[in-house]
Design a protein around this nucleic acid. Structure first.
Lengths: 335, 335
DNA sequence: GTGAAAGCGCTAACAC
DNA sequence: GTGTTAGCGCTTTCAC
């Protein structure tokens, strides 16, 4: 059995309240006694039982993190930020993987509350209404990642997906492309996928281009999926000169398909991505893409949660981090 | 304030022990009362406080997972297995990221014990003696991932790195290569990196080849690192016909360097990897590599931890999972 | 400045 | 079968 506060108190010849006071510096203790207690703690290697402490303080020092896929490249990088900053504030991370399934998401949200986590960082591919409803109802602070919640009560952190997609589309257009396919994410209307679509739309319209429904396709974040879409472009002989995929992995799927079918990138087709995951600069050709401050997204989300836990006022419900268009080797000018 | 067992007891007009009994089915309760209590639990949405329960049961239902890099591709995939099987057994995952730094590793090991986790899954790049010593000393069950601990007391799960590296080297040799570089991991002698080296060594020796010290190099799991190594090969004009990197990411670093310098893969140089992370079949050329059952490694590690928690006998301290050589497009026969 | 005692929400003897 | 009670290890009034 490990050593408790009682043991320390006994050895020090003081009451447990006194020991508690020196541990927490919650009230003044005479320097003499403090030293004695400290010494005994040192000697015995006593560590306060956080569970007992949690029980009385009603604080678990735990933050739940719900993600749709731990092994997803983008998410892995976000987790780095979450973990590091979380630990900085003394919070441990309870990790939950939902595979993006609503049922799992609801289950974990419930489980995490039962576990008394103090806050939840939530990420999903598709933010279903039922989820929003549930999240807005619960007491535990929740912050959403990678999703603009300006219409909701839930705080969030993301980049300006509309603006980023606009810039990227404009960039492609400025490079001489007139046929620009969009492989977007199949998501609900309030999602970032919709914002991105609007950005794409605006850039085309501004430049007098019409949206070609054949060239706007829904992907599902999977490489195989964009691969198939491009295959269809080829088969139907409607291959555009540029493809804008709203995730790097989908961009790579597109490029792989092109390469497999004897096309050159960017020689025949320019392909650009979104996110700038590590892979974007590992893969050849290096991806032209929208750089997101991925680590910071995780870091900021924790900072928000901590503020909410401490009942501090949030400057804003929606935090928008800066993005940047990174020009690499998968796109080129045409005339 | 949320509802407690007391409230339920009062509403049901029974004692709290009875409520506890129906919650835990720990002792028979008359069907009539059981129904009544169940109904009230249903109505009130009562959920037992796991912290209070932990305090008295001395069980936290938490498993600590310590990894050197959450965003590492290989580790992300392992985490999937850990999370899923862990949840299956009712355990939550406390995630800790160490960046492979001994100081952090020790700190987290300590923190996790203080948090009363019931077991720890531990992963690191370099298993330092100090760590082994510490782990062997503590009461909390620990299992090591991706490391053969046959000489230690600590259980582990991994593949047969020696055999796998042997097979891969032999495969390359059988493809006609006589100059085979090895980019191995710079690790302590008991590590899998050493086993892999021995496998490489054996395959060469069996075939009457000598080890060329210029061609056996230490990488550090980083892409940039193997990139530099290959650059040096080129500069010194000692480029071999085949490069065996003991991680897929390092293999890709090698290929990138070759491509950047105008070489073809596998045209001029065959490059093979190790692990078979998702990226291995996304990257072009697809990597010839050693397939590890990555998800299963995570899954099995949790099963072992659960057995240890339950004080069940382990069949074996060291679990070796099967591997497989996967032939893809980054290697070819030469004459 | 210090100690006694109550109580966080729960489980598990122990009685009946 | 059911209720009473004693803790689990800690924080925090409330006295002194």
């Amino acid at each position: 059995m490990s050593i408790t506060i009682k043991d320390v108190a006994k050895k020090a010849g003081v009451s447990i309240s006194t020991v508690s006071r020196v541990i927490n510096s919650s009230k003044p203790v005479s320097s003499e006694i403090r030293q004695k207690v400290l010494k005994i703690i040192e000697d015995t290697g006593y560590q306060p039982n956080p569970i007992a402490r949690s029980l009385v303080m009603k604080k678990s020092q735990l933050i739940g993190v719900v993600v749709p896929d731990i092994s997803n490249f983008f998410i892995g990088e976000i987790l780095n930020g979450i973990e590091e900053i979380g630990k900085m504030y003394g919070y441990d991370i309870l990790l939950c993987n939902t595979y993006g399934q609503l049922e799992q998401e609801l289950r974990y949200l419930n489980l995490l509350q039962a576990k008394q986590v103090e806050g939840i960082v939530f990420m999903t591919w598709k933010l279903q209404d039922q989820l929003v409803e549930y999240i807005e109802k619960i007491d535990t602070p929740v912050v959403l990642i990678n999703r603009n919640t300006s219409k909701l009560l839930i705080p969030s952190v993301s980049i300006d997906n509309f603006q980023a997609a606009y810039e990227m589309t404009k960039y492609i257009f400025d490079n001489g492309h007139k046929k620009i396919a969009l492989i977007r994410n199949s998501l609900d209307q309030d999602a970032f996928g919709f914002d991105q679509f609007r950005g794409y739309q605006k850039a085309l319209e501004e430049n007098g281009l019409e949206i070609d429904d054949n060239l706007v396709r829904y992907g599902n974040f999977k490489l195989e999926n964009s691969y198939e879409i491009v295959k269809e472009f080829i088969q139907k002989d409607i291959l555009p000169t540029a493809i804008f995929a709203t995730s790097d992995v989908m961009a790579i799927g597109a490029i792989n398909c092109l390469l497999d079918n004897g096309y050159e990138v960017p020689g025949d087709v320019s392909v650009v991505g979104f996110n700038d995951i590590k892979l974007a600069s590992i893969y050849r050709p290096n991806l032209t893409t929208i750089h997101q401050p991925i680590y910071d997204i995780g870091a900021v989300s924790i900072r928000i949660i901590v503020k909410m836990i401490n009942k501090e006022e949030l400057d804003s419900n929606v935090v928008i981090l800066p993005h940047e268009l990174v020009e690499r080797d998968s796109s080129k000018k045409i005339k």
